[in-house]
Design a protein around this nucleic acid. Sequence first.
DNA 1: AATTTAATTGAGCAATGGCTCAATGAGTCA
DNA 2: TGACTCATTGAGCCATTGCTCAATTAAATT
Lengths: 196, 196
Amino acid sequence: MSDVKKPRGSGRERIFRAAVEVLMESGLEAAQTRSVTERAGVGTGLLNHYFRWPVLRAAAWEAVFEDAPADIRRADETPRAAIERFMAEAFAPEARLYWRLWIDAERLAPHDPPIAEALDRIRTQLRSALARLLADGVSSGDWQLPDPAATALRLDALRDGLAGLILAGDPAMNADTARQHLEALFAMECGVAGGG
Amino acid sequence: MSDVKKPRGSGRERIFRAAVEVLMESGLEAAQTRSVTERAGVGTGLLNHYFRWPVLRAAAWEAVFEDAPADIRRADETPRAAIERFMAEAFAPEARLYWRLWIDAERLAPHDPPIAEALDRIRTQLRSALARLLADGVSSGDWQLPDPAATALRLDALRDGLAGLILAGDPAMNADTARQHLEALFAMECGVAGGG
DNA sequence: AATTTAATTGAGCAATGGCTCAATGAGTCA
DNA sequence: TGACTCATTGAGCCATTGCTCAATTAAATT
């Protein structure tokens, strides 16, 4: 009876989980307290009893990306396989939701301290995971890179820029093209002559 | 007397010019009709008499970037000089305002048709101006590129991504570092071995 | 001067959205 | 059973913001 309308867990937990779901559906900026309380099956007052919206929002955002750094290089995955998956997943349709959340966070960060802190933590972890992967590939002889950390930063930034173009509806950009450009950069980084 | 408070021009002109100024100061999202009418020294009703806010905002935005495409390659400028200026200006402090406007527009575009159209026009012009510059540099023997249009797109996207990192307050990114990465990409595009 | 037309005003409307707070319900302890 | 605590509710507050509209002023026309 009580779980027809209300998911399991205490009010506080339900609100947090609902916030995560709302973020995934609506993005950071369109998400509202009312959507969260509605989805949690809870009065509007309860959210404000437990949380302050900007803090809850940032916490839910961080929860969405919590596992991402560890997922850059999965257990027993070769560097080459991980990089191939990196390229394949970068602009996959399933990634759109995450890109929107990511870019929303970059936009909000200058005016939203909780978001800024969360973004900083996740970004640092993601980037060092990628740099580690690139360095491992050098160690294992899969590829050569003069400066894996710098390459990680460029791959990161180019992926960010390409995803931004896709999300902004650039007619000259789509997932396939974006992937080709990202792969072209990696090839150049590894010393293969300039890409087309 | 009448130009102590009110700048010259008709109400319509004054409002448009004020809109441009407000955009430059506040960015696209923080800009409000009241700031514009205040700055124009005009009643709030007049703005709505002449314009619809989303349309005015997009028109003012486009006016800000109107001259940018032609400025990629100035008259009597060699390709090399133009590219050097491109790199130097990309992340200069003066460019911050424009970056904010640009990224705001990318964010608004999916939900704001007037902005989407303006962004599309300017982006197309900017990108083809850059591609033309790169192709000219190949013709003149300043550099070699297998596919100048693809290189233009990557330079564009990487610059976008790097600027996004700076604006979002990434502690690992600043104007100098960003410029180095952008130059590293260009060097690789031209066939110089992978950059550090 | 009289009339018409256009420019201009700003108080206020309507919708939005985070948050308050007095009230209610439910569980616990003596 | 009464007293106390904590969870929960939701109508409504309050500030924001694009926009309306009846009223006013100024300019042009006859």
